[in-house]
Simulated scan of single mutants.
Amino acid sequence: MMEKLFTRQAAVAALAGCSVLVALGASLPAAFAAEVKVMSTVALTPAFGELTQKYQSGGNQLNIVFGTIASLKKRIDAGETADVMILSRPVLDDLQTQGKVVQGSVANIGKSYVAIGIRAGAPLPDIGTVEKLKAVLLATKSISYADPAKGGASGIYFAKVLDRLGLADQMKSKTVLVPGAEAGEMVAKGEAEMGVAQASELAAVPGTQVVGSLPGDLNSEIVFAVGIGSTSTDPAAAKSLIELLTGPVGAAVLKSKGMDPA
C-alpha cells in the first residue's frame, strides 16, 4: 500500500515537473529575445520598412536610429554605439580600424548614386550631358536636396557640383534644403519641382520618379556596408540581421527600393 502511495506521488511530481518545463519552454523565446540597436544611414529607411517586419518575425526586436552618415559618425565618435552600424564603406572601415566595429564583420550590402528626381508622370528632362544638366537646372522652378550643413552626403556632394558648374549663386533663390532624405517627398507633394538625393531614397517615394544619375564625371556612387559594433552585447543577434541584409531576401528588398547590389 505504502509502495503504491510513493509511486503515485512520484507520478504526480513528474507530471508537475513536466508542466513547469513546458511553461518555461513556452516562455523561452520571449525571455531570450534580443533588442538589436541599429544605427543606419537614412538611405536604408525605405528598405527597413519591409526588413524590420521580416527580421522581427524571428522574435528579436529592432531599435533603429536613422541619420545622415556624417551625423551618425559624429555620435559614434562621441561615444555612442550600436549592435549594428550601417554606413558608407569607407566610414565603416575607419571605425573598424579604430576598434569600434568588430574586425572582419564589415560587409557590403548595396550601392546607390546621387540622382535627379521629378514628380511621377512629368516629362523626363534630358540630363545626359553636363551642358544639358546645366540647362535643366537653370530652367527648373525649384529644387530640393539635403542641407550640406546637416551632413547629408548627397547634399554635400550636390552643392559641390553646383559650385563646379558655376550655378551656386543662381540656384540659391529656388533651393529648398531639407534635413535628411526628404527631397523626394518635397517633389511628390509639389513643394519642389526637382529633387536631388540617393536614387534609392527617391525611388522609394510614391509620386516621385528617378530621372537618372548625374552625367559623366559628375556621377557619384556610394557603397553602403554593415558591421557589428565592438561593444554589442548580443553579436549573434547582430549577425543574424547582417545575414538577412546580405542574403537573397535582403538583396531583393534593397533592389526593390532602388539600391543596386554592391
Rank of each mutant, 00 (worst) to 15 (best):
M85K: 04
M85V: 15
I86F: 02
L87S: 03
S88D: 12
R89N: 09
P90H: 08
P90A: 03
L92T: 07
D93I: 00
D93G: 05
D93P: 00
Q96N: 12
Q96H: 09
Q96D: 14
G99Q: 07
G99V: 03
G99D: 11
V101G: 12
V102G: 03
Q103L: 13
G104R: 08
G104I: 07
G104Y: 06
G104N: 12
G104A: 12
S105T: 14
G110S: 12
G110C: 10
K111R: 14
V114E: 01
A115P: 11
I116G: 04
I116N: 00
I116R: 00
I118S: 00
A120H: 12
A122D: 15
A122N: 15
P123C: 13
P125Q: 07
D126P: 11
V130S: 07
E131L: 13
E131Y: 09
K134M: 12
A135Y: 14
V136P: 14
L138C: 03
L138A: 10
L138V: 06
A139W: 04
T140Q: 06
K141A: 09
S142W: 06
S144C: 12
Y145H: 11
D147S: 09
D147V: 08
A149P: 03
K150V: 05
G152F: 01
G152H: 07
I156D: 12
I156Q: 15
I156P: 11
Y157K: 01
F158T: 13
F158L: 14
K160Q: 15
K160N: 15
V161A: 14
L162N: 01
R164M: 03
L165N: 06
G166A: 08
L167H: 04
A168C: 00
D169F: 11
Q170R: 14
K172V: 01
K174I: 07
T175E: 04
V176H: 04
L177A: 10
L177M: 13
L177V: 09
E182V: 08
E182W: 04
A183K: 08
G184N: 11
A188C: 04
K189V: 07
K189E: 15
E191F: 07
A192V: 02
M194S: 14
V196D: 06
A199E: 02
A199Y: 00
A199H: 04
E201I: 04
E201F: 04
L202M: 08
A204L: 06
A204V: 02
V205D: 03
P206T: 14
G207I: 08
Q209V: 15
V210S: 03
V211M: 11
S213E: 06
L214P: 03
L214D: 01
